[in-house]
Computed example of a mutant assay.
Amino acid sequence: MPDKSSQLKAFERLLIVMDELREQCPWDKKQTMESLRHLTIEEVYELGDAILDKDLDEVKKELGDVLLHIVFYSRIASETNDFDIADVCHSICDKLIERHPHIY
């Protein structure tokens, strides 16, 4: 079983880096959900290609890129108090639990 503590620290690090970039980087500051959309689609295609190529190192990198986009969208939404990354996590957990009544 993976060490949850180190996983949570890594995720916290990503959230901190995203906060710093959103606050300090001119490019990151001006991004919107709409401006990121085409980049997100591109990252998902790159992930798909890495999977088809069975290149696990590249899959790891592309998963990171996709995760960055999820965190980025959540950060943008948190700035308008619409939702944040915790809401996103709870939403998918609720959906998974609902879809697996044989487990929950």
Rank of each mutant, 00 (worst) to 15 (best):
C89V: 15
D19E: 15
D84G: 05
E62A: 00
I92A: 09
D19V: 04
K4S: 08
V66T: 02
A50G: 09
H102F: 09
L36W: 06
V59H: 08
D53A: 15
L21R: 05
D87Y: 10
R99D: 14
S91R: 13
Y45P: 00
V88R: 05
K95Y: 13
S6C: 03
L39K: 10
V71A: 14
C25P: 01
S5L: 11
L67C: 08
D84Y: 07
S5K: 12
R75I: 01
K61Y: 00
I51G: 07
F11I: 09
I92F: 15
L36I: 10
Q7K: 08
D3S: 11
L8W: 06
P2A: 03
M33Y: 04
R75T: 08
A77H: 06
L8T: 04
G48S: 10
C89S: 13
D28F: 03
R22M: 04
M1E: 12
Q31L: 07
C93N: 15
M18K: 13
V71F: 11
L63N: 00
V71N: 06
S74T: 03
K9H: 06
V17Q: 13
D49E: 09
R75C: 10
C93I: 15
A50V: 07
L52N: 13
D84P: 07
I92T: 15
D53N: 14
V44H: 06
S78M: 05
S74R: 05
L8H: 03
I41K: 07
D65Y: 00
L56K: 12
K30V: 10
Q31E: 06
Q7S: 09
E23S: 06
I70W: 03
K30I: 11
G64R: 02
Q24H: 05
E23C: 01
H100D: 06
D55F: 01
K95Q: 12
K4A: 12
S74K: 05
I97N: 12
E79L: 08
L21A: 07
D94S: 11
Y104Q: 10
R75G: 02
D53Y: 06
A10H: 09
V88H: 04
S78N: 07
D94V: 03
K9G: 00
P101E: 07
D53V: 00
D65T: 01
S78K: 07
R13L: 10
I92W: 15
C93V: 15
M1G: 14
L56R: 12
C25N: 14
H102V: 00
I70Q: 11
D82G: 00
E34G: 08
E34R: 12
D19Y: 13
D19G: 09
L8Y: 10
D3H: 14
P26A: 01
L14N: 03
V88F: 05
D28T: 05
C93M: 14
K54M: 09
K61T: 03
L63A: 04
D19S: 15
L47K: 10
I85V: 12
R22G: 01
N81Q: 13
I103L: 14
G48E: 13
E79A: 06
K29P: 02
L15Y: 04
L21P: 01
D3P: 08
L15F: 02
S6I: 15
K61G: 01
S6N: 08
